[in-house]
């Protein structure tokens, strides 16, 4: 490795062939450079045609230096003039591997580079590089991560910000980029826990299969867009409403049974602290009745309310087979 100061004007910032880092957020790097200067040299590669140097390692450092108005950076150059793409990328890969585990999008980017830019076969990627990236050496894993690299930029951002789980991202990445592009605006407006993400995406896939459309088509229905665009709802409320809407569409008979149950339950005029719960899927006619009271008087009043409910014709209907 040969080290020297390189003017930033001689570096090609547009060439991101060897980039692995997903997050190019500059603030922490700028703060570090301002505090202690450039500790580690970046790694650059000279071009055979004497054009501007290519960045191998140090994308964030160089961008931060540029944003700070610096004219040059300390850089190392691999020995010899002609290391091939793979040799250069391995420098970047091992440099990253030595620092911290690869985030999923970084692993996806690295695998894509190894395949597309470095011409590595699937077999080599599976056997050699998946373990290096901390992944299980299996063809399906490779395919999932290559798909993940094609994730729509908006969805990448959601994932990077922790709002989209890896399994949700993998699922979304199976769709075409155009479909992902149609889903992204809705998904950016809502928040869902990991399990609800899974449920919503599964509901979208199910409804898409049933109605002969795409998950994007389902998520862009007028009702969904109206919920997603409702300014009075928080992102979490929007997510929950959309989940409920999709579940009702997916399970119309169960929904009808639930609606009928709750309508009939209302007719019993029970006090609010009395819980009356059916079997969640009406598999059995059993009902669970529960209440908490803090005094004998409250107990007596509750018992009287239950007694009145017992005389209501609506009670029989609650036990009818739906």
């Amino acid at each position: 490795m040969v080290f020297k100061e390189v003017p930033l004007s001689e570096i090609n910032f547009e060439d991101e062939t060897f980039r692995i880092t997903e997050d190019l957020c500059l603030e922490p790097m700028v703060a570090s450079l301002q505090a202690v200067g450039q500790i580690h040299p970046v790694i650059l590669a000279e071009r055979r045609d004497s054009g501007p140097c290519r960045i191998v390692c140090g994308f964030r450092r160089l961008r931060a230096l540029r944003s700070m108005g610096r004219a040059a950076a300390a850089a190392g150059f691999p020995a010899g003039r002609g290391p091939d793409e793979l040799a250069l990328f391995l420098l970047a890969l091992w440099d990253k591997a030595a620092q911290r585990p690869f985030a999923p999008l970084e692993a996806a980017r690295a695998l894509s580079t190894l395949k597309q830019a470095c011409g590595q076969s699937d077999e080599v990627l599976i056997e050699r590089f998946l373990p290096l990236l901390g992944l299980t050496p299996h063809r399906n894993v490779l395919q999932a991560f290559l798909n993940l690299h094609m994730l729509h930029p908006e969805l990448r951002r959601l994932m990077k910000d922790g709002h989209l789980t890896l399994s949700s991202a993998e699922r979304l990445a199976d769709a075409s980029l155009a479909e992902q592009g149609m889903m992204a605006p809705v998904l950016c407006k809502i928040r869902l826990s990991a399990s609800l993400q899974r449920e919503v995406l599964e509901l979208c896939d199910d409804l898409a299969a049933i109605h002969g459309t795409t998950a994007a088509g389902i998520l862009n229905a007028d009702e969904i867009l109206a919920i997603a665009g409702d300014p009075d709802l928080s992102p979490y409320q929007k997510g929950e409403r959309i989940r409920r809407h999709l579940a009702r569409r997916r399970n119309p008979r169960l929904t009808r049974a639930q609606d009928a149950f709750f309508a009939e339950k209302k007719d019993l005029n029970l006090p609010g602290h009395v819980r009356l719960s059916p079997d969640p899927y009406f598999e059995s006619p059993q009902l669970e009745v529960s209440f908490k009271v803090a005094s004998a008087q409250a107990f007596r009043e509750t018992a009287e309310a239950l007694g009145r409910a017992a005389q209501t014709p609506a009670l029989e209907k609650l036990f009818e087979v739906r």
């Binding site: 049933i210 997916r250 008979r253 009406f282 739906r322």
Partner: peptide, 25 residues
């Protein structure tokens, strides 16, 4: 089998975590 319509039924979780058609069905 992306063209299979088997998963399209109205299923609910049943015993042992298996999915089954909603009982009235």
């Amino acid at each position: 089998f992306p063209r299979s319509s088997v998963p399209n039924g109205e299923f609910v979780p049943g015993n042992h975590g298996k999915l089954r058609y909603f009982r009235p069905i």
